[in-house]
């Protein structure tokens, strides 16, 4: 079982994903160049964080239209797992695999810190083990989740909220929200639950020496759900 780590120009977190998956989770992950037209032989897709194409036009906009994305969309629509942290979340929204969009942080500051997250939809392959609040790092300037009222209603009706930013008591407070996202939304799943996009980086929280290993709660659940562990 293999994960395709898609490399775009300007992505800068693919090595984080590579080491988290291969070294900390025992999943075989390989780099796949964005110009490649096929995902044959892969069982999951990881769209890494970074600043693909310099965030030109809008964050994630150009990467979302790269050659490999038609394959990623087909892959996702077949119910196979696709994960996009940070810029990967922006790409998933721009590609239409998740609803809404990410805009500049309300504070206009680039926020680089740990945040606390509460899982909302507990039935997805990614969030089913997240019983407790998890602490996961963020590093973004454009993470303010926005959508219109009809979309927000659809998100609630279909239970698409994967994670919300919370305080230590698990409350959706304003000070726990690092970017001004609607309803403290930090991540979404798609209707089938096989696609997860989130601004925080669970792949940067996979061992204590990195400052915490709460990311394993999400990545292990995903690996076990799709039987990805090979070593």
């Amino acid at each position: 079982m293999k994960v395709a780590l898609v490399r775009f120009p300007g992505a800068n977190c693919e090595q984080d994903g590579f080491h988290a998956l291969n070294d900390d989770l025992g999943i075989t992950a390989e780099y796949v160049w964005h110009a490649q037209g096929s995902l044959d032989g892969y069982d999951a897709v990881f769209l890494p964080g970074g600043f693909t194409y310099g965030d030109y036009l809008r964050c994630g906009a150009i990467a979302a239209r790269a050659n490999i994305m038609s394959e990623v969309i087909r892959f996702a629509n077949e119910g196979r797992p696709v994960f996009g942290p940070c810029n990967g979340f922006q790409v998933l929204c721009e590609a239409g695999l998740l609803p809404g969009a990410l805009m500049q942080n309300e504070s206009e500051r680039f926020r680089c810190e740990n945040v606390l997250l509460k899982a909302v939809n507990r039935s997805s392959p990614w969030t089913r083990n997240a019983d407790q609040i998890v602490s996961i790092p963020i590093a973004h300037g454009e993470g303010r989740y926005v959508c219109d009222d009809d979309t927000l209603k659809m998100i609630h009706d279909l239970n698409l909220v994967a994670f919300q930013y919370v305080n230590a008591s698990g409350e959706l407070s304003e000070d726990a929200n690092p970017n001004g996202s609607i309803e403290n939304i930090a991540g979404l799943v798609n209707k089938r639950g096989n696609v997860l996009g989130m601004m925080p980086h669970p792949e940067r929280a996979t061992k204590k020496s990195l400052g915490g290993d709460d990311g394993l709660v999400i990545l292990r659940a995903f690996a076990e759900s799709f039987e990805l562990v090979t070593t």
Partner: peptide
Amino acid sequence: KLLANPVI
């Protein structure tokens, strides 16, 4: 298709 995002 590219230049504008109708969501925002």
